[in-house]
Design a protein around this nucleic acid. Structure first.
Lengths: 206, 206
DNA sequence: TTAAATTTGTACTGAACGGTAAATAAATAT
DNA sequence: ATATTTATTTACCGTTCAGTACAAATTTAA
């Protein structure tokens, strides 16, 4: 089945590339947060006018969700990959190092959209705020799962606490996101990561 | 000189308590952030009408700065105190434990206003955003100073890096703020703090 | 008792907010 | 050719935003 180019559709053809526009919207939301991004700035950045944007992506909330999905599937897709490293230590190391890289990459906005997209916000944005909290809980849970696996496989002490360790690493990541937004360099974040790694339990099988 | 009660001032007397109103404004900004707090919600919370608020506190930006000053002088005043603990280890311990307490205290909003007051924001809030970044840099610098003192006094290894360690602790604090806003309990934050403390250099003089 | 000073309440301002109606343009299907 | 479908453009909607003009109210000073 060729589902790639269902050309010869009826009607006036769209004058902009859907994914490219979504990428530009992602950039605005990543920089400004949900609330801080105005529809005016968004339409400006996308180079299309307002009704086209609404027709293509729904409303502001839906646009944000679609941009967030693109964020997860794109820049952040490294995260799940790092969980498949052979040991918990290596998983954490890769996760934090790659995070430091993304958070300070000059080719994209600083900080993490899941952390900062709607941390504090007005009454109208509380739904998005809750959704982002859920995303944060999700990746912390993923870390916890990874640590539980490590305990079974013996590369983490059986008496270590997977949930506590996961929250510790998630806390580090979230703090690094704040640091990146505050202007911390890649090297500075790596120094933080090294401090964390120096002190992980079961240090011997480095 | 009695500057406390310069009573018998001309004009209609103010119908509300200045500090009490400022405390209510602090609560709103602490919860919503600078941008998320609307003047309507603020006047509602303070129970005074708009012109009274503007006459007493200036505009939204100035009100935020005054609320922030009250925050620093009040709920956050513990921070400087912890720096005077006899060792770096004890200073960090007190700083993080007291932070966990404040960040999850049911009597005030969750999270830290310096971290979340304007992390991501729209174009109109960038001045406040930069000011908060400066406040974050300031307390990180204060940690660095404390660690340098500890190196001189011998309770931190001379070859440890005070700047890196300060950034690590600031990162932890900022991550804990995000965690608190995401719903983490006091006990969960304390578990994070314990993980950090277990791994501080120069562990012997506990 | 009147004047001066200050705060209060009401009602408003222009700008920005998210969102949309309606006409026009550009494509395919018949 | 004409109808149908979809996208674009312009111009607008009502609401909320931060901020204020103005007059009434309440105090002290003269």
């Amino acid at each position: 089945m060729n589902t790639v180019k269902p050309n010869k559709t009826r009607g006036r053809p769209r004058a902009f590339d859907h994914e490219e526009a979504l990428g530009k919207a992602l950039n605005v939301f990543w920089t400004r947060g949900y609330e801080g991004a105005s529809m005016a700035e968004l339409t400006d950045a996308l180079g299309i006018n307002r009704p086209s944007l609404y027709a293509a992506f729904g409303n502001k909330e839906e646009l944000f969700r679609k941009a967030l999905a693109k964020y997860l599937a794109g820049p952040v897709s490294y995260a799940e990959a790092t969980m498949h490293e052979p040991t918990a230590r290596k998983a954490v190391e890769k996760f934090l190092r790659k995070s430091a890289e993304l958070l300070t990459n000059p080719n994209n906005p600083r900080g993490c959209m899941i952390v900062q997209g709607a941390l504090s916000c007005g009454q109208g944005s509380e739904l998005i705020q809750r959704e982002l909290i859920t995303y944060r809980k999700n990746y912390e849970d993923r870390l916890k799962q990874r640590f539980e696996l490590a305990q079974k496989q013996g590369d983490l002490p059986g008496d270590s606490n997977a949930a506590d360790l996961a929250k510790y690493i998630a806390t580090i990541h979230q703090g690094m996101s704040v640091q990146a937004t505050s202007g911390a360099s890649y090297e500075e974040l790596i120094a933080v990561v090294n401090t964390v790694l120096d002190n992980l339990p079961e240090n011997q099988n480095r």
